[in-house]
Amino acid sequence: MINLEVIDDILLKLKNYLQEKQIELVIRKRVYTLAVECLDNIYKHADHTNHISEIISEYPPRFIIEKIYDDFQINTGNIILDINKVKINDKLENLNKLTLDDITILYKKSLTNAEISDKGGAGLGLIVMAKITTQKIKYDFQKINDKFFYFAMQLTIKK
């Protein structure tokens, strides 16, 4: 199960790894930033599903970072409520259509209008991801049942 201690532990290990491997500062911080936003997203969606242990064991949260030559790839997966699927899909579809300049404009506009939710989210996570990765975001929704989908996302950081 994902909780704040697990997230802190992953981020600390990641930070140490990136430093040890002497990854270029900009890339190191981009990977770290994306990792934080991805883990935040997984954590914020987790409370909908924590009580449904049979689904969680079959569809556990996923967070994988791979270094492929000089690039990094982050793969995430988590259960989301059916009612959130359309919202996430529309956001990603729109972000993937925008140029980097348009994403920056959207980011600035969203920052002004953002409201912080009870869970501490500003609704800016996906926009920040699109801004940082500079690549199109790959994603997929797999239907679990009438109430839940498994949301998978892939982010790439190119040197």
Binding site: Y32, T33, D40, G120
Partner: peptide, 10 residues
């Protein structure tokens, strides 16, 4: 050094 998206709002 680093801040997350929610901190950016504040």
């Amino acid at each position: 050094e680093y801040f997350n998206s929610a901190s950016a709002k504040f």
